[in-house]
């Protein structure tokens, strides 16, 4: 089994996508690369197709919301290469609202439901997604519940008053 070093991937990405690798970090020994927003799909496709990498499995992808950061929204992708037993985390930040990302469903079929989840909870839009609608919440829900500004309910609500239920 071919072994893979973090530096090999970083060097390859910086050579293939000059200026698009924004930051590199190793939190808990987990290679984390921040990619410029517009290049995320090209990077993922390159990591998928490059034979020495072969990141053929999308472990997870999800949205993030940092309301006070200069770049408020981000997508996080965890990729896994079975041939080299190597994992990598990619991030892409944007300040658009709603945030728009290219879909990965044409690379990874499994991205379908995960991107629907990011749409459901954060309102992310994925261009090219075949079926972008809510997946876990009810269709009639208004707003994006995992955004920090989503109002949680009034603690002084009256509709659970015992008098309403005859007990």
């Amino acid at each position: 089994m071919a072994t893979l070093e973090s530096q090999t991937i970083i060097d390859a990405l910086e050579q293939q996508f000059p200026g698009k690798v924004v930051a590199v970090d190793h939190p808990y020994d987990f290679l984390t690369i921040t990619i410029a927003h517009g290049s995320i799909k090209d990077v993922v496709r390159y990591l998928y197709n490059e034979p020495s990498f072969s990141f053929r499995f999308l472990t997870s992808c999800c949205g993030m919301h940092y309301p006070d950061a200069p770049q408020k929204f981000a997508m996080v992708y965890h990729l896994h290469s079975f041939t080299t037993n190597f994992r990598i985390r990619l991030k892409a930040f944007t300040n658009e609202d709603p945030p728009v990302f290219p879909t990965l469903t044409d690379i990874y079929k499994g991205a379908n439901w995960m991107e629907r989840e990011a749409y459901d909870f954060f309102g992310f839009r994925f261009t090219g997604h075949p079926d972008l609608r809510r997946i876990l919440n009810m269709d009639s829900l208004e707003g994006w519940p995992l955004r920090k500004e989503f109002p949680l309910e009034d603690p002084f609500r009256k509709d659970k008053d015992d008098a309403m239920f005859g007990r």
Binding site: N137, M138, L141, P145, F150, L152, E153, P155, D159, K160, F165
Partner: peptide
């Protein structure tokens, strides 16, 4: 889940 939820029914009744 009685307080601060957007998804849970507050009692099956």
């Amino acid at each position: 889940f009685f307080y601060n939820t957007y998804s849970v029914v507050k009692g099956a009744d």
